[in-house]
Amino acid sequence: MPKEIFVVAYEGEDDKDSLLTYALERAAKDDSALHILHVLEWSPYSFLTQEEVEERHGRRKQEISRAREVILEPALAAAAAAGITASGDIRYGQVVEIIAETATRLEASMIFVGRSGSNSITSRVFGSVPLGLAQIAPVPTVIVP
């Protein structure tokens, strides 16, 4: 039985070498489990065209299955190969909020997040995921460079 749960805010390919490797090492050292979480940014208040409304349900299915195949499953396989107990989830919503809410729900003891993407102009203006977590994370958060 693992001692603790760490939530990994996993964006995919960019996080694979740095974030995932680090999270696996820490989990092995502390005899803890990982919850690998991939969040697809989504606002229920954005505006859609009539065609986008019609296609949304089908597109959501595609997005989830793609994220599962390309992002989540390889990460879970890497965890299994390293002998780490890991679960995973794909969610829609506001990324920072969902990560914080998941950490609370699972009573996780730490959040790991990659620094990827935080150099873009958008993230400098509107704030990146690590910056958002710094403000609202319910548990200690490690930003992996």
Partner: peptide, 25 residues
């Protein structure tokens, strides 16, 4: 307002979006 929206359905068209799209027509 989304008071009755199941969080597991996030990513589907929300009631707000349905209303906004229909109104823009």
């Amino acid at each position: 307002k989304g008071d009755y929206s199941d969080p597991d359905d996030a990513g589907e068209v929300s009631h707000f979006q349905a209303l906004a799209t229909a109104l823009s027509g």
